[in-house]
């Protein structure tokens, strides 16, 4: 596969390490009253769609960027690639 890195252009997927669902960005608040349940869901419950999926890829043999790649799990078509940092900020993560 070829991943169009937002900073580095088209790169072979062999340069990357795969992690999984981009929901791993949405780590719960440790002080939430239901933290135990929320961390359980965060850690173990994943959607496994046949179709469009946002997932985390790490450019390990490149610039060490974590990317959010929107990939169709059926066709492997990649429709969007973003820096995970930008996605995390857009989802309200900061410090």
């Amino acid at each position: 596969m070829i991943i169009h890195h937002p900073l580095l252009g088209p790169r072979d997927s062999a340069e990357f390490t795969y992690l999984g669902d981009a929901n791993l960005i949405d780590r719960p608040d440790w002080q939430d009253k239901k933290a135990a349940d929320k961390f359980y869901e965060y850690q173990y419950l994943r959607n496994n769609p046949a179709g469009e999926h946002q997932e985390l890829w790490y450019h390990e043999a490149g610039d060490r960027s974590w990317l959010v790649v929107t990939r169709n799990t059926v066709t492997h078509e990649i429709t969007k690639v973003e820096l995970a940092r930008d996605v995390a900020r857009a989802r309200g993560r900061s410090k």
Binding site: L56, E60, W66, A84, A88, K95
Partner: peptide, 14 residues
């Protein structure tokens, strides 16, 4: 890799 994940994905503004 884990630390880069934490730095970029969990706490991007640290």
């Amino acid at each position: 890799r884990h630390m880069e994940f934490a730095r970029q994905c969990l706490w991007p503004d640290l």
